[in-house]
Design a protein around this nucleic acid. Structure first.
Lengths: 210, 210, 210, 210
DNA sequence: AATGAATGAGCGTTCATTCAT
DNA sequence: TATGAATGAACGCTCATTCAT
């Protein structure tokens, strides 16, 4: 759908970009940042243009409408996380435990979330408020990512590392909810992302009780 | 700040409202619903007016600007949850365990969040995107609510029901993140809120591991 | 279709107009004049607003789009002529000859065409260039007027005042073409409209030959 | 004024054109067609470029502005008709009657108008709506063509084939108005142009009366 | 000879806000 | 209390035009 093989994707080897492609990226980055900070409706093309260092009308050389920018920002917001998580899990040794796999996935999710926070946070923040059509266009990739976590948690439960009576749907929602919330409060001066992921998994697996 | 002792608060006994007050409330309800669904910037005063059954210009008899409506909606969004949680805990027997208190608080939070009104979702959804001044005006009550949870969790840890080495800040953020995320996916046809709260607390205290 | 019972119609008794209706009319007149002079696409709402003595945005209180103004201008352009011609013929004595009736119709057509020349001329000039949808909306009234002339000419031929072998379709097209062209060159200082109509009918019936 | 000895003129023998000249012609043809269909203001250089099979910026290699294209299209629109009419009359036998000459001229005018190109219709349709300067530039050739018809009709009247008391100015305006109107309704499936011209002249000379 | 990229001006339109009634 | 009418500022978007390549 998106013609952008934008360099932000952890999954692609950065190619040398033509100037024209770089401009396109600048527009997307500017848009993501502003969408995140102000929402979609409150962001003007002139604001995007200032950040991307061109004039508002020029944006239309790269995108045919503000909504097209939105679509691409929303898509990248999920895609970049999905790619990173999948790559991380694929790189894990075959004999990694279920908990290790979840911890690695959580760390990758958090890491990407926070590193490409403009796209990811923009997605989480504005998804509920954009038009039905924009939401519909984003839904399939969201579902795919959700399905990926379902499978991951399911396999860990099958392996016995998650108790058989645990409601995996809720587990997933709680886990992703916790992580996605982090975009709002994470401060990289306090502790590294890996520690955050460890603590989260410790809480999830062992609980906080005595 | 707000002159509204609006009837939506579970904490107030409904008083007979003057017609003028009722109109005010209708405006606030309409605004909250639309802010939640579309965001602040995408919501027009004319849309609010239609829902509130008057004309756009008339809103200015009750509010001096669109931003003033926003302030009040944001404030109510936290206040109503805060009130409900505090009342619930106050009504608990003195000898309730820490886990019982947290579970009750979580249920009250979730219940108000999910069932009670558009104000809470509106708050969570649009807070990050409104102007700095609007955010500043909402910050104190947010801090108060955060502090309330800090105290609650602290007292439970002091009582020994949460392990001493647990990072309470993260615990709180994960817990509230999980709950606030629920606004996006909760389906009251699947399970009641009380069960949701129980499962969440079970996960939190006991973990999902074997 | 049009809510305008605009005073320009020779067929309606002018009612006292509310100020709001007068503003609406001013907009339509301004638009017709500018559409005629510059075409539809070249006319801006700001130009219309200046002539109508309000601000561009205010036009939207009366019309929901520039195209809606166009529709109404186009409709009035035909309607006003049609009404005048029909009224004139209806007012003729029963025993008027066919030639008298055609001459009266031609005079009424020319008179209205030239008196309300902004609407009529706008119609003739821009009809071919507006969107298909706008054209479609104008087509039915154009057809009705065409049909009226067909019937008139047919009845005169049936009465024997037009030779039986004459192609009425062409006659009609030539006659209306001649008259509609007049909007571009008529100069009321040279000769009155009634004389123009007489000469035209003389040419039509008797020819210019010896 | 125009450097184009464009091949569209029925009056010129086609010379082999350089590629550059052919591109120039394509641009003019594309422009004429679009001006005719949509008007001048509604036609974009990009639309012209698409039809002419190049990119918008390249048009500036051939024309220094959109208005320059307009000037040339307008000029050709009259020129091509004028040339055709003059050539036709010049080719007539010396002893042709006045009526034969008028009929031949009318047929040539109609033929060029209807069949030959978009330039003529474009001219009639948009002349009234272009800027004063563009109109001024087109006026002299229009006057020349008008003068040509004046002379033609005058000579026929002098020869006695048009009654002495006939107002030649009106006759000319009616005749050209009828013919130019035909551009809007002529259907080549119904009858050939020559028949149309004959019928028009019959009406003009003999009238439709008994 | 032609184009990709960019621009500035201006377009139709929206909307929070004002105010006389 | 409430509204109809109006406004000014800004929005998304278009387009003739420029120019380095």
């Amino acid at each position: 759908m998106s013609k952008s093989n934008i360099e932000i994707s952890a999954a692609t080897v950065p190619k040398p970009l033509k100037k024209s492609d770089r401009t396109r990226e600048q527009i997307l980055h500017a848009a993501a940042k502003l969408f995140r900070e102000q929402g979609f409706a409150a962001t003007t093309l002139r604001q995007i243009a200032v950040r991307a260092k061109l004039k508002a009308g020029s944006i239309y050389y790269y995108f045919s409408s503000k909504n097209e920018i939105l679509d691409e920002v929303l898509e990248l917001g999920i895609q970049v996380v999905f790619d990173a998580v999948r790559q991380t899990l694929d790189a894990l040794p075959k004999n990694a435990s279920g908990r290790e796999r979840i911890e690695a996935a959580a760390e990758a999710h958090l890491y990407t979330l926070l590193k490409y926070s403009d796209f990811t946070s923009a997605n989480f923040r504005i998804y509920a408020q954009v038009s039905n059509t924009a939401r519909r266009r984003n839904r399939s990739i969201r579902r795919a990512y959700t399905g990926y976590w379902k499978a991951l948690l399911g396999s860990v439960q099958d392996g016995g590392e998650i108790a058989a009576d645990v409601d995996l749907t809720l587990t997933r929602l709680f886990l992703l909810g916790s992580m996605n919330g982090a975009v709002e409060w994470y401060d990289d001066k306090k502790e590294p992302i890996s520690v955050l992921a460890q603590k989260l998994c410790a809480t999830l697996f062992d609980g906080v009780g005595q």
